[in-house]
Design a protein around this nucleic acid. Structure first.
Length: 490
RNA sequence: GACCCCAUCGUCUAGAGGCCUAGGACACCUGGUUUUCAUCCAGGCAACACGAGUUCGAAUCUCGUUGGGGUCACCA
């Protein structure tokens, strides 16, 4: 496919799992790229060597793939503008830094951390806002050289002149910041490591990023970065800052609200199509009416102009409803595979059982799937299919374990014994007739039977269950229930 | 605290001066379908944060107040 000049990127730090906020940022970038025929780039911002871990990096790639967010350039994909790991781009930063020093847009700062800290405290004590004094900005080239010759270490700062920076954000509109609000920011630390606001700009510029789509939290960084773009002589990209995702209590979404990382949602039994659809709806809408979007429809309909400005609270209930929707729409084979994988992963059933009972399991899943909103709920739907001994619902037990039900169960067992085929429709017909002849309501027959055969008051179609479980097991279960009534009531 | 951003039902949102007695979805409530649950169907509850302007007319424009969020690092 021929790509145009639209290039966007998602740039996670491998310091943790992929958070839903990050996932949505990635999604919006991806949708924008796919919609416009542009290029989607994945860049790993791993310069925080203490917190970055390879396992997080792997997890992020895995979760991105699970969501279906494929990247055109980046780790494992390669690309012309690499490397795509910041830790491998040191020489590029060095080269750009030299440009800045040569043009006088950056200068060495010899102030020690202690000095700066003291300065800060002094200013705060007087009730002023802390700003770097600009002391080292005054140093002449000779003075600076003299200091370095004496072995004094320096950080490198950007020289910020007076004035205002204005930019137009695609979702926020025009934003203006007075340079008084901006310090002479550090570009390279005393230890030689470049800082985020410097490397992000260099990377975005060198990778020819046309649209920077990222979280709201970067909005205050943007004027600083524009200053760096200008100092470097690079073209400024378009910016689009998307609002943050909050928890149900409107504080930033975190683990204490429940699941907050993509892998956690996956583990709980959510589908990737659910996550993509829901995340797209969180902060974006098409017409305010349509709720269900396939990935193709999202690509076709997405636009940054329709991204909302305000932060959205994550609604776990709506997510679950959506998942139920996608689960219902799924074909039996895929549903079976997902359930089987879930049951195997959580060691609820063994590989051996899956192999020997393949047909049985398929029929069971097809039966109970109607009640699932999460794949993980398959577990508790399965109890009476996997075990012949199970607890009875206590309330229902009181209701149905009655002396008068003795004759009911005797009849039911007799009828079932005389029945050869358990095909659900004729079987139901047979019991309907039986209810009439017993002068009982059909439900008065079905409910006690359900309790005996499943242990519960609700289940899928009882007669389909009976067919799947088989005549012998059903008779055993009915007989066992009858015996227990006779023992206490007889 | 300073600076920046935001503000429509409980939640996600539609709404870009008259189409709004504010629409849709989740949740909730009622009824229907079903052997039960789930589904499905029908209906209901429920919001323009507040106060001043501008205007013939404001959810929509302006200002202020309040509330929420973000950022203020030699973290990313």
């Amino acid at each position: 496919m021929i790509k145009n000049n639209i290039r966007v990127r998602f740039a996670p730090s491998p310091t943790g799992f992929l958070h839903v906020g990050g996932a949505r940022t990635a999604l919006f970038n991806w949708l924008f790229a796919r919609h416009s025929g542009g290029t989607f780039i994945l860049r790993i911002e791993d310069t925080d060597r203490e917190r970055s871990k390879p396992e997080y990096e792997e997890a992020i790639l895995r979760d991105m793939r699970w969501l279906g967010l494929d990247w055109d350039e980046g780790p494992e994909a390669g690309g012309e503008k690499g490397p795509y790991f910041q830790t491998q781009r040191g020489s590029l930063y060095k080269k750009e830094l030299e440009k800045l020093i040569f043009t006088g847009n950056a200068y060495p700062c010899f102030c020690s951390q202690e000095e700066l800290a003291a300065d800060r405290e002094a200013q705060i004590a007087v009730g002023k806002i802390y700003r770097y004094s600009g002391k080292c900005a005054q140093l002449t080239a000779d003075e600076a050289e003299e200091k370095s010759r004496k072995g004094e270490l320096s950080a490198i700062r950007l020289r910020v002149k007076e004035g205002f920076t204005t930019f137009t954000d695609i979702v926020r509109g025009q934003v203006t910041v007075n340079h008084e609000e901006i310090d002479d920011l550090i570009l390279v630390r005393r230890d030689g490591e470049p800082t985020y606001n410097f490397v992000a700009v260099v990377d975005d510029a060198l990778m020819e990023i046309s649209h920077v789509i990222r979280g709201d939290d970067h909005l205050p960084n943007t004027p600083k970065q524009i200053l760096v773009y200008n100092a470097l002589g690079f073209k400024i990209p378009q910016f689009a800052h998307i609002p943050l995702i909050l928890g149900p209590d409107r504080s930033p979404l975190s683990k204490r609200h429940g699941a907050s990382s993509v892998s956690e949602f996956k583990r709980q039994g959510y589908l990737p199509e659910t996550m993509v659809n829901y995340l797209a709806l969180l902060g974006w809408s098409f017409d305010g009416k349509t709720e269900i979007f396939s990935q193709e429809e999202l690509i076709q309909k997405f636009s940054l102009e329709r991204v909302v400005k305000s932060a959205a609270a994550f609604d776990y209930e709506k997510l679950q409803w959506l998942n139920g929707h996608y689960l219902r729409a799924m074909d039996d084979e895929k549903m079976f595979q997902l359930c089987r994988d879930y049951l195997l992963e959580n060691k609820i059933i063994s590989q051996k059982y899956v192999q020997s009972e393949d047909i049985y399991l398929r029929r069971v899943v097809a039966l109970v799937r109607g009640n699932l909103k999460l794949i993980s709920q398959i577990d508790e739907q399965l109890t009476y299919f996997l075990n012949d001994v199970y607890a009875y619902d206590p309330q229902a037990l009181i209701k149905f374990k009655t002396a008068e039900n003795i004759s009911v169960f005797e009849r039911v067992i007799k009828v079932l014994n005389e029945t050869d085929s358990l095909a659900p429709i004729p079987l139901e017909e047979r019991f309907r007739k039986e209810a009439v002849s017993m002068e009982r309501k059909f439900s008065e027959l079905v409910h006690p039977m359900r309790l005996a055969i499943t242990g519960r008051t609700n289940s899928p179609n009882l007669f389909e269950i009976m067919e799947v479980i088989g005549k012998d097991r059903c008779l055993d279960r009915l007989q066992r229930f009858l015996n227990s009534i006779q023992k206490t009531k007889g």
